[in-house]
Design a protein around this nucleic acid. Structure first.
Lengths: 347, 347
DNA sequence: GAATTTTACAAAACCATTTTCGGAATCCCT
DNA sequence: AGGGATTCCGAAAATGGTTTTGTAAAATTC
């Protein structure tokens, strides 16, 4: 199939390329008659404009980048749906990049954006990201950036998060109310703001209730499942094990369930479990899982919407835009008071 | 931050733009001394070449498109990981598009690819897709296409699938061996090859065992959860309900569990359930779920690898490349013989 | 030492589109 | 009728690279 360009259209119609270009954009300086002829030929020859020529000339790519740690998590899956929905509606294209929780990969990916490949960036930083030069660097190129979920506070721009502190507080408080006296918070990172804010909420509950922080009050996990299994098993394989666990991220929940099964620990009788999770299957787990559910789709939508505002209105200031979409607590069997299984009509 | 272009580098160094361009590509006709000076300045000025200028001239975008129904499913989440891993290694960029199971959206998305925006396409067609003109159309533009999972057999190109027929056979056979005599296959589509092949496998088991096909041997579901809940409930709310269910897709499993809970049907005592699923949480469901697990990551990898072969070796023929990555049966409690719960050391 | 090749770079064409500028023809107004 | 505005379009520059062609000087060959 031969490439049909504006030039070919122009030759065929005995018009100049400029005229055809303007006709395609419905410019007022082109007669309706000419526009009609152009459009007829466009349909006949199946002409589709070359986006890269346009991008080059206009210095706009109508493309955004989404940078994620990975899509294994159901949170990011849902967020992608939200982002893509907005982008498709706005006629934008979405480039996706995965850092696999690696800082150097994140650096390399961001570096490329200085090229003008994308008009804007949505990013949820990697677990390893502790400094932000690579991000501020592309920012100086005038490319708007919106953080979602995992933000980087040193960078002055819009953040879309959920109420992490309050959620951590609610999670811990719920466990306390269900009788837990020795709670361990399973963190995924000592640097990620999201993990720390949730942890702060947990700390607040401890101090509010005059519970002193035990040495195993926080367990830092890694991105390696086998390692996490070992450390959680080590935590629980003890007569003095915690009676409440807060999984700060979905993945850890599955490991927790495995450990409990292997150690013959009953949930919720021996240990109550609450998880930050978007698992659709939380309700049909064994036992059903109490969750703090993040509004993943909405956060993706909100982040994309903010970004597009910055792209469409010049001089739109992202800096002080901070959208907080609240998470919700779903109480289920994994934190039930021993012996009293509720049957909620959740469906 | 001012845009630094090749022209700026050239001026600074008193060289021509062509020379700088060649120096950047390590051309043999440029002296080592000049190359060094160019690279020094590149680092100093933080120069990143404009990809669109390059794409325009070279007629290559180093970008591929991934077209998916949605990423709600854990299958597609894992597949994206596989695809992105290969693409990142090859230095390609990945545009992601969601059809949301809509044929017209799929058409619109595909149409844009005639523009040269992408060098190649990975696609898993929507549930509504019954004809393939829109796909063959972009194929005539010389853009290589690889189908994965949900293929379109009328289009002559590479397919990466799992052994759907055999898996359907294995699933049904497993239920028969566990004593099921009245099995219903929950389909997601009457046109999707993947759903039909699995169904064929199921049919084969029926005929092999001299079981005649009941009228409710197959239940066609939709993309609407509430509808599916009603129709599955209707199926099961009957003394003569099936004693075995095959969920052809992950999503339906959760609905099935809900229905059974609401109807007070016990799994596996009253009905055994097997699902095509990649849920990491299958093992900790209530009861744990017997699955046919598709090699999602590997399929994504394989599809991307095939596509890159076609992109890198010209005249590489995709047409007769058919990669079949086998699924595996994971037997768990949801299909257990009544009363004998196994404890598998799966971890 | 003349002819030839090689080296190392410059100049210019090219990719497909957008946009500015200008100009001829037509229309409007008095 | 003449001056100005409007309509409709062409020519050309510009976007930022890549690639082809051209060309001096240096190196090599005979």
């Amino acid at each position: 199939m031969a490439n049909v360009t504006i030039k070919k259209l122009a030759q065929e119609l005995n018009l100049s390329v400029g005229t055809v270009s303007k006709a395609l954009k419905d410019s007022h300086e082109i007669s309706v008659e000419t526009k009609r002829k152009v459009h007829d030929l466009v349909n006949k020859l199946n002409y589709v404009p070359n986006p890269y020529a346009s991008s080059l000339r206009k210095r706009k790519s109508r493309t955004i980048a989404v940078v994620l740690p990975e899509v294994a998590d159901s949170f990011f899956s849902l967020a992608i749906n939200g982002i893509e929905a907005v982008a498709q509606e706005k006629g934008y294209h979405v480039l996706i990049y995965l850092t696999h929780e690696s800082f150097s990969k994140e650096e390399n990916i961001l570096k490329d954006f200085k090229s003008g490949r994308v008009d804007g960036i949505l990013i949820s930083v990697s677990r390893e990201t502790t400094e932000s030069n690579h991000i501020r660097d592309v920012q100086t190129f005038g490319i708007p950036i919106v953080f979602f979920d995992r933000v980087c506070e040193e960078v002055e721009t819009a953040n879309v998060t959920t109420n992490d502190f309050e959620s951590g507080y609610v999670a811990a408080k719920h466990l306390v109310e269900r009788g837990c006296r020795q709670i361990t918070y399973l963190s995924i990172s000592s640097t990620l703001s999201i993990a720390n804010k949730r942890m702060e909420g947990y700390y607040k509950v401890l101090s509010d209730h005059g519970m002193k922080m035990k040495e195993n009050g926080v367990l830092f996990c890694t991105n390696n499942e086998a390692d996490n299994y070992r450390s959680i098993k080590n935590l629980m394989n003890n007569n003095d094990h915690p009676d409440g666990l807060i999984a700060s991220v979905e993945k850890l929940t599955i490991t927790v369930y495995h450990v409990c099964k292997d150690l013959d620990l009953r949930i919720p009788e021996d240990v109550k479990v609450i998880s930050f999770s978007n698992l659709a299957s939380a309700l049909i787990l064994n036992p059903s899982l109490t969750t703090i559910t993040q509004p993943a789709f909405e956060m993706g939508e909100a982040a994309a919407s903010l970004l597009f505002k910055a792209l469409e209105k010049r001089n739109y200031v992202l800096k002080d835009k901070n959208v907080v979409v609240p998470s919700v607590l779903n109480v289920r069997d994994s934190t039930n008071l021993t012996g009293t299984h509720i049957q909620e009509p959740e469906w």
